[in-house]
Design a protein around this nucleic acid. Structure first.
Length: 110
DNA sequence: TGCTTGACAGAAG
DNA sequence: CCTTCTGCCAAGC
């Protein structure tokens, strides 16, 4: 029972990238969302990892509030400690274990 | 063509 | 809460 889409075509991958950036741009200040949620909103639920790759390697992603994207348990991106500072600046609180307090800041569109 | 790498997710212990 | 493992899938080599 295949419950995920087939492999992306070049065109679909391009559109996926655009959608990811558009969605990231909609995350409100002081809120965060996850790679999985973004992938699902873009129409490819099983591509959470590709969302991360897009943000990491797409030129121009730095101009987006990509620091508001964390993994499903609120962990910040590996190798980017400054992300925490950026989030704290806009009021995002962290738990003792170093994860974002998701119950308080998780955002998802209607 | 086949194996390895990840800004991931979720379950198990 | 943390570690480990499995599933996932485009990219790199």
């Amino acid at each position: 029972m295949k419950d995920y889409p087939d492999k992306m075509t070049r065109e679909q991958a391009r559109r996926f990238g655009d959608d990811v950036l558009n969605i990231v741009g909609q995350i409100p200040r002081g809120r965060v969302t996850t790679y999985g949620i973004i992938a699902a909103l873009a129409g490819w639920p099983s591509h959470a990892r590709m969302v991360g790759r897009t943000l990491r390697y797409t030129p121009g992603a730095e101009a987006m509030p990509c620091h508001r994207v964390v993994n499903s348990v609120g962990r910040t991106a590996p190798g980017w400690a400054f992300q925490r500072t950026l989030l704290e600046r806009e009021g995002v609180t962290f738990r003792p274990n170093g994860h974002v307090d998701m119950s308080r800041h998780l955002w998802q569109p209607q």
